[in-house]
Design a protein around this nucleic acid. Sequence first.
DNA 1: AATCCGGGGGC
DNA 2: GCCCCAGGATT
Length: 336
Amino acid sequence: MAAEALLHWYHRTKRSLPWRGESDPYRIWLSEVMLQQTTVAAVGPRYARFLARFPDIGALAAAPWEAVAAEWAGLGYYARARNLHAAAQAVAAQGGFPRDAAGLRKLPGIGAYTAAAVAAIAFQEPVVPADGNVERVMARAFLVETPLPGAKPELARLAQGFMEQPAARAAPGDFAQALFDLGATICTPRNPACALCPWMAGCAARAAGRAGELPRKAEKRARGVLHGVHFLIRDGQGRIGVRARPPRGLFGGMWEIPGTPWRATPWPDAEAMPHAPDTRLNWRAAPGEALHQLTHRDLVLRLFIAEAQALPPGLTPLTSPAELPTVMRKLLGLAG
DNA sequence: AATCCGGGGGC
DNA sequence: GCCCCAGGATT
């Protein structure tokens, strides 16, 4: 496979994306973090909105956590926001971004992939970031039968091997993004459009008629169920009370409607009620349940509602439902 | 190496 | 319903 053929295809067909053509490492880094396990379509509007609110690394470093959390709400994987904030403060204290992948890798929230992506795209370091797209392209091009995630090191080595070609080494950022585009538009997980692929002639999986079967993946475990009961308090002004979740774990550091812990067995009302912020209020059950699917869990949440003159101590009035993670907005929907 | 950590879109 | 997404941290 010739790097030059891929680059030629890229320059002819590349997607127009908001972070393409940026050279500011802050903007490249932000796009890479937002795109972790998150689709291009979902990131697009959030990327612009985040930059409008935090236009540079100094603004992000100086912002309070609550502002960052509010901006990230709904995007998922909230540890990304916490690490983004911490990394911004570290970078600001250092006077700027580390200029190579090894230095970037030390920042919170930056792993092997993101370090390589930022180094290649922002600093033209001759490294190839191996994301899901790149792994898929390599598994097919070289007919790698080892299932993921075990095959990751081998696929990353195969990808890095392209940097031996002068055309790739001359444009590491374009080469990385060309691989992303190839995986996203041609070498797709299902029904790859091999006839349009610039690497069709050299692709081993294509020759074997097996492109659609690769990469192989280890079998996944079954999902579990978690049950919870939450308590919505409205004060005299119609405001609702929220509290911050612990900084680590599910929805870490995000606002939540107070409630029971989440556990595998359902909560009977009598057992849940002591977890109400004020057990003396007149709690009534909202109809139905909020169902929310996570990667490894199904959440089943019920809701009780009460009115109070003032919010109990420990609760904060919610400024806007948009500052809640999606699961909490779903729960709020039960209140009608 | 396995598990945890969100939400959305495609099929 | 299942799969996947410009993955990282923790154990």
